[in-house]
């Protein structure tokens, strides 16, 4: 199973998470988002970039409530809440945003 774009092939697992995180690119993120029926906006990118920074710092993808709490801490309560995050990523902010960010499935996600 793989994503294909511009002649590049990037392998993913059965749930769509890419298997080699070093192969991520913004272009690939758009492809993954399309598969998830998400049109990437600046607001989506803000969350995806936040997750990539979080992963860089801690080497883990946060579980959904940890993500929302951390977003609230860094971007305020207008964004750090369930309603806003599920509006952006209807099928689970942590799961979908991690997938688009090229990260593994969030830790603690059952």
């Amino acid at each position: 199973m793989a994503y294909q774009y511009n002649g590049t092939t990037v392998e993913h697992d059965e749930e769509g998470y890419i298997t080699d995180i070093s192969l991520w690119s913004r272009e690939l993120a758009d492809i993954i988002a399309k598969d998830e029926n998400i049109e990437m906006t600046d607001e989506h990118w803000e969350v995806v970039n936040f997750l990539r920074d979080y992963y860089e710092e801690y080497q883990i993808a946060p579980a959904v409530r940890v993500l929302i709490k951390s977003i609230k801490k860094s971007m305020g309560k207008d964004k750090g809440n369930n309603k806003y995050m599920y509006h952006l990523f209807p099928y689970g902010p942590a799961k979908q945003a991690c997938k688009i960010a090229g990260l593994p499935k969030p830790t603690g996600c059952v």
Binding site: Y58, Q59, I60, P62, K69
Partner: peptide, 14 residues
């Protein structure tokens, strides 16, 4: 192999 030790610093978030 992956260095997972930075994750201990995220425990407070959890």
């Amino acid at each position: 192999i992956k260095n997972f030790s930075p994750a201990y610093r995220a425990l407070g978030d959890f």
